[in-house]
Simulated scan of single mutants.
Amino acid sequence: MRSKYWSAALFGASLVWAAPASAQNVKAGIDAWQRGDYAGAVAIWRPLAQAGDPDASFNMGQAYRLGRGVLVDLGTAQTWLEQAARKDHVDAQTTLGLLLFQNGNQAEGLKWLKMGSEKGDPRAMLVYGTALFNGDGVAQDPVLGYAYVSRSAAQGLEPARNTLAQMDEIIPLAQRKKGVALALQKAKTQSVAKSAPEPTQKVAQTTAPRTKIQQVAATIPTSGAWRIQLGAFSQRSSAEALFRKLSGSAPVAGRQQFLVTAGTVTRLQVGPYSSKTAASAACGTLLGRGQPCFPVAAK
């Protein structure tokens, strides 16, 4: 199973909510953000971030990532997030890891996601745990991976529950028991990171009209060296069912399914994509909808 996740719940637009008495200006910026005064919020946070306040730095990173009050600039977002992450800001470590991971810097992204996982952030635990389970970019450790994803699912993260269900189809019972025991042990020793409430307005997700999907399909390349992997299943029919479910979505529409056998599991891959960048972009869209996804080179 080489599934990768992230969704609005994983890569959320949350900002730091509770501000200590010594940093009430950070809270004032959040109040402005809630009113829709994004530029005003940024104006409050910027000098605080420049002075090294990790909460303000994290919020500046989110503003640049989302394009609220400033133009979208992922490079600047990364700079601010890293400033906060280096000061042990858990949300910044996880968000930075997700940003890097989504944009193809897997090794650096996993480094930060490991830090977030060790502090119990559910989003980080899902991605890093899945990487451990698959051996993607890290030494394979299915028991530890199962433990992290179990903890993420226990905290109510829906994509983690879906990933855990896929793992349950693959991993032997003895390893699952070890994973659960390890998860319980870590829960006692790690402080559970709680995501801050989201003060921003949620954008409703709509399904693209069929005519739009047909237009996208018409521009799809017929050859390419890259695919996206959407999961690994103990039953071939489960992989086929997932492809049918996703075949109408813009990143998948018009492309082929590839059912790749690996031991006792069947991996669902979709393609072709002309480049790793194109495959990563498709995964970014699917991950934003909660569907695990990862670019892979076609063999």
Rank of each mutant, 00 (worst) to 15 (best):
L48Y: 06
K178Q: 14
L100P: 08
K87T: 05
Y64R: 11
L113W: 01
L71F: 11
L48P: 04
D168V: 04
L71G: 15
G75A: 14
L48H: 02
S57H: 03
A63P: 00
K119P: 00
T95Q: 15
G67Y: 13
K177N: 08
T79Y: 11
V149S: 03
D91E: 14
Y128G: 14
G109E: 11
Y146C: 05
K119F: 05
L113Y: 02
K87P: 00
G116A: 11
N59T: 08
P159G: 13
Q175M: 09
Y148S: 09
L126V: 10
D168L: 07
T95G: 07
A51D: 13
V149E: 03
M167R: 08
T76F: 01
G145W: 08
P122G: 07
Y146G: 08
A153K: 05
W80V: 09
F101K: 03
R161P: 00
P122M: 06
D121S: 15
Y128N: 13
A131R: 07
R123D: 14
N59E: 02
P54N: 02
A56W: 13
G97V: 09
A147K: 01
D73G: 02
A124T: 07
G135R: 08
K178H: 03
M167C: 09
V143M: 01
G129A: 09
G120E: 13
L81D: 11
K177M: 04
D141V: 07
P122K: 03
R161C: 01
M60S: 05
A85S: 14
L81S: 08
L48D: 06
G120Q: 13
V70H: 09
M60I: 10
G109L: 03
F58H: 12
G97K: 07
Q106W: 02
L100C: 05
A160F: 04
D121F: 06
P54W: 01
A139W: 00
E169Q: 14
D88S: 12
D136C: 02
P47T: 00
G61E: 05
A51W: 02
Q166F: 01
G156P: 06
A85I: 13
L66C: 10
G156K: 06
R123F: 06
T130S: 15
Q93H: 11
R123I: 03
V127S: 11
D168R: 13
N105L: 02
E118V: 05
L126W: 10
D53M: 00
A147D: 03
A147Y: 00
R86T: 10
A174W: 00
Q140I: 08
F133Y: 14
R65M: 13
Q166D: 13
P142G: 08
P159H: 09
R65A: 15
A84L: 10
T130A: 15
L74D: 09
T163F: 01
S150H: 04
T79I: 11
N162V: 01
D73M: 06
L66T: 12
Q155E: 12
E118Q: 15
N162D: 04
A139L: 03
T94N: 09
G69R: 01
A84I: 06
E158G: 02
E108C: 00
Q62T: 13
E108V: 06
R68G: 11
L99I: 09
D141Q: 08
L110Y: 07
S152N: 02
A56V: 03
R86H: 10
R86Y: 06
D88I: 01
A85N: 12
S57Q: 15
A131L: 09
W80Y: 14
N134R: 06
